[in-house]
């Protein structure tokens, strides 16, 4: 198995651990990842609001390169990249004017794109291509007794819901049930927003959202929250002290990328998964996993 891989900007900075744990996990599963040549920022969520058409061109450049590399699928790990790239595809397919404008922009840099590269979330590939049965075969350190809060974030399945339920996704639940973890399947806040970029512009609003999420995780008895997006992960993890200050709470809940925790269950070395890069110490999680 081989996939063309788009890490996204965060994966080179705050979300480095997401990138390295993805590579380590896929290697463990015998899946080859080939990084997309000369990829650029997807445009993220903010660009759409400012210059919509340009944002499609920026996103489509990545897809054009994928097509040029002879691939018809692109594996994406970040929820925002996933939604943004897929959105460019959707708008190109639905609106001939967008299609023509994007073609024009790509043409100016000597590229072309037919709109047919399928953007796929890593979870989609794990569940639907590799399959839970195969994943289960690689689990060597069962996460028995570990209470996991599966946090999908708002852009995991919304708005398109290509591979999971739009409002109530369950793929991550099923993945961790396969590892033997005690998954909080009724985790009420699983698709609530973490505040996203608001953390930089309206910190009070973002902290309020993070506070709600952390309360929900604690109410569910979470030992660890697992995330599928670099922004969700950093907001929920690194801002716990500020949440505590604003709300008089004492949160210190480990937050990990789901690829990290899945990697641990498959016996991958914590260092290879970037566990040491986490802000909130993951030692209690590591200690809870039987050797």
């Amino acid at each position: 198995m081989r996939y063309l891989y788009y890490p996204g900007c965060s994966a080179e900075a705050t979300g480095k651990a997401y990138d390295i744990s993805t590579r380590a996990l896929m290697e463990k599963l015998g899946v080859e990842l080939v990084e997309l040549d000369d990829w650029n920022c997807c445009g993220a969520t903010s660009y759409f609001s400012v210059r919509e058409l340009d944002s499609f061109a920026i996103a489509a450049r990545n897809l054009a390169i994928a097509q040029q590399m002879g691939d018809d699928e692109l594996l994406v790990i970040c929820n925002a990249c996933y939604t943004t790239l897929a959105k460019a595809n959707r708008y190109m397919a639905e609106d001939p004017k967008v299609f023509a404008a994007v073609q024009g922009a790509l043409g100016a840099v000597g590229r072309t794109y037919d709109g047919k590269v399928k953007v796929r979330h890593i979870m989609d590939i794990l569940i639907n291509d590799i399959g839970l049965e195969e994943i289960g075969r690689h689990v060597t350190r069962r996460l028995t007794g570990l209470r996991v809060a599966p946090y999908y974030g708002c852009q995991f399945s919304r708005p398109m819901g290509a591979f999971d339920d739009v409002q109530m996704p369950t793929t991550m639940d099923r993945l961790f049930e396969t590892t033997g973890a005690d998954v909080i399947t009724d985790f009420d806040a699983k698709t609530d927003c973490c505040g996203g970029m608001m953390m930089l512009t309206r910190e009070d609003a973002a902290l309020r959202l993070c506070h709600e999420l952390l309360v929900a995780a604690r109410q569910g008895g979470a030992d660890v929250i697992v995330a599928a997006c670099p922004l969700c992960e950093i907001n929920l993890e690194a801002y716990q002290p500020r949440v505590n200050k604003a709300y008089g709470t004492d949160f210190n809940i480990p937050v990990m990328y789901f690829t990290q925790l899945a990697g641990l269950a498959m016996g991958v070395d914590p260092k290879q998964l970037g566990i040491d890069k986490q802000v909130v110490s993951c030692d209690p999680v590591l200690a809870a996993i039987p050797a």
Binding site: D188, A189, D192, H211, E212, V215, A216, Q219
Partner: peptide
Amino acid sequence: AEVSSVAL
């Protein structure tokens, strides 16, 4: 928007 059981 939602009916939740999470108490703040």
